[in-house]
Amino acid sequence: MTVAVHRSGVTTFRGRPITLLGPELHVGDTAPDFTVLANDFTPVTLASSAGTTRIFSVVPSLDTDVCDQQTRRFNEEAARLDGVSVLTVSADLPFAQKRWCGAAGLSGVETLSDHRDLSFGTAYGVAVAELRLLARAVFVVDAGDRLAYVEYVPEIGQHPRYDDALAAAARAGG
């Protein structure tokens, strides 16, 4: 994996600065393509959900409290928005994601694994160099594949700004 961009000072992990791999994205940018894996190991790309408004909820690991809460909240609240889907992306293995969904009793949650080559992480600038995990972030992509909302959470252990992301998703077409 060759990544030209290394960014420091964007976020911390337990108060310590970490290095993110990939570019910093902004509202209005074209959403980058990526290849991740669904729970059944089938490839998923940006085009797999083309023509819809998507919330990409990025978490370090579903097996942590904040990640669990973030995944549940976005899925519960976005269900009230017509035409908006939530895709939770982490570097967890597809097996672990499937187990988490079953244990959480959330059959409608779409989890995507970036464990193979951090394709999503490096395209969206959230791959953590020191940990080989993804930093907490939220991206809202509209039906035309433009970024309608971008949030790189400053401390991995903090929650994102749910209301801001959901409002952006509603404006983008939900």
Rank of each mutant, 00 (worst) to 15 (best):
V3T: 14
S8F: 05
S8A: 14
S8I: 08
G9M: 12
G9T: 12
G9R: 07
V10E: 02
V10G: 06
V10A: 07
T12R: 12
T12V: 09
T12G: 03
F13N: 10
R14D: 15
R14A: 15
R14C: 11
G15Q: 09
G15H: 02
R16W: 00
T19G: 14
L21F: 04
E24Q: 15
D29Y: 07
D29V: 13
T30K: 11
A31R: 06
D33S: 14
D33P: 00
F34W: 04
F34L: 05
T35K: 05
V36S: 06
V36W: 05
V36F: 04
V36H: 05
N39I: 13
V44D: 04
A50H: 04
T53F: 05
R54H: 05
F56Q: 13
F56N: 09
V58R: 05
V58W: 01
S61H: 06
D63R: 08
V66R: 02
Q69N: 11
Q69Y: 05
Q70I: 13
Q70K: 09
T71V: 10
R72M: 06
R73F: 04
N75P: 00
E77I: 08
A78I: 11
A78M: 07
R80E: 15
R80T: 15
S85R: 12
V86W: 00
L87I: 15
T88C: 07
V89D: 00
S90L: 02
Q97K: 00
K98P: 01
R99Q: 12
W100L: 06
W100T: 02
G102Y: 03
A104Y: 04
G105M: 05
L106S: 07
S107W: 02
V109Q: 09
V109K: 00
T111F: 04
H115E: 12
R116P: 00
R116M: 12
D117E: 14
L118D: 09
S119G: 14
F120N: 10
T122K: 06
T122W: 00
T122N: 07
T122M: 09
A123D: 07
V126G: 06
A127T: 13
A129N: 05
E130K: 02
E130Q: 13
L131E: 09
L134S: 11
L134P: 09
R136K: 14
R136C: 14
V138I: 14
F139K: 07
D145P: 00
L147Y: 01
L147Q: 03
L147G: 02
Y149N: 09
Y149G: 11
Y152R: 04
Q158M: 14
P160H: 03
P160N: 01
P160Y: 10
R161H: 15
D163E: 15
D164H: 09
A165K: 02
A165L: 10
A167F: 03
A168M: 06
A169I: 10
A170Q: 12
R171C: 06
R171P: 02
A172E: 03
G173I: 10
G174Y: 08
